[in-house]
C-alpha cells in the first residue's frame, strides 16, 4: 500500500484532524493564562471532582443494593456520601454557571462549550430527580406520587412513568450518568480546544 493510499484512509484523516484540532500540549497544558489564577475559575473542576465522588459512591450503592444502604451503618455512610457529594456537585456547578454567565463565556467561538455545559446541567437535574424517586423509601414514594401529576399533565407520563421504580432506577444509574459523563467529557474537550475564556478587558485577544 502506497503512502498516498494510507493517507486517504479514514483512520489517517481522522487522526490528522484530531491532532490538528487538539494537539497534545493543548489537551494537557503545563501552564494557564495568568487571569485563570482566580477563585471563580475553580468551580468547574470542583464540580468534576464532586461528580467523581457521586459516581464512585453510586457504584458502591449499586453493588450492594437497597437493603444494604437502608440497614447497615456503612450503607448509611455511603448513602450520605452520595447525597452530600451531589449537594456539592450542584452547589459548585451553579456558582460555575453564574461565573461563566457573568463572563459571557460563550465569547470567541465558545458557543458549543456553553451549550454542552448547559445541557449537562439539565441532564444532571434529571439525574437528581430520578435519584429522589429511586431511594426506595417513603420519601421516594411521596415524591413519585407528587411528580406523576406534573409529568402526566404534560402527556409524558406514558413514556416516563415516575411510579415505575425499575424505569426510574435505570434512568438514574445508566442513561443519565452516561449522558452526564459524555457531556462533561465533551465540555472539557471544548474548553481545551478553545481555551479558557479571558476577562472582558482582554476581549480583543478573544476575537483575534
Amino acid at each position: 500500500m502506497s503512502n498516498a493510499q494510507i493517507e486517504r484512509q479514514w483512520t489517517s484523516r481522522l487522526r490528522h484532524r484530531v491532532v490538528e484540532k487538539l494537539p497534545p500540549d493543548r489537551l494537557l497544558p503545563d501552564t494557564q493564562p495568568a487571569y485563570v489564577a482566580s477563585w471563580i475559575y475553580v468551580f468547574g473542576v470542583t464540580t468534576m471532582a464532586a461528580l467523581g465522588i457521586v459516581i464512585l459512591t453510586g457504584v458502591i450503592l449499586a453493588l450492594d443494593g437497597p437493603q444494604w444502604w437502608h440497614s447497615s451503618s456503612l450503607g448509611h455512610f455511603v448513602n450520605s456520601m452520595h447525597l452530600w457529594s451531589v449537594e456539592i456537585f450542584f452547589f459548585a456547578m451553579v456558582v460555575h454557571l453564574w461565573g461563566k454567565f457573568s463572563m459571557a463565556a460563550w465569547r470567541g467561538g465558545r458557543s458549543l462549550t456553553w451549550v454542552t455545559g448547559a445541557v449537562t446541567f439539565l441532564a444532571s437535574i434529571l439525574a437528581g430527580f430520578t435519584g429522589y424517586v429511586s431511594q426506595t423509601n417513603f420519601d421516594s414514594q411521596w415524591i413519585a406520587t407528587q411528580a406523576k401529576d406534573g409529568i402526566n399533565s404534560t402527556g409524558g407520563g406514558a413514556f416516563f412513568n415516575v411510579l415505575n421504580l425499575g424505569q426510574m432506577l435505570m434512568w438514574h444509574i445508566v442513561l443519565l450518568p452516561l449522558a452526564a459523563l459524555a457531556l462533561t467529557g465533551l465540555h472539557v474537550i471544548m474548553v481545551r480546544v478553545k481555551g479558557v475564556v479571558p476577562p472582558f478587558e482582554d476581549n480583543a485577544e478573544v476575537s483575534a
Binding site: P29, P33, A37, W39, V94, W98
Partner: peptide
C-alpha cells in the same frame, strides 16, 4: 443554600487567589 451560593460567588470574585502575584504572564 441559595444564600451560601451567592456568598461563595461574591467571595470567589473578590477573594485574593494564593500565589497570584508570583505568577508571570501567560503561557
Amino acid at each position: 443554600v441559595i444564600i451560601l451560593m451567592v456568598a461563595t460567588f461574591v467571595a470567589a470574585l473578590f477573594a485574593p487567589f494564593p500565589g497570584r502575584r508570583n505568577r508571570k504572564g501567560t503561557k
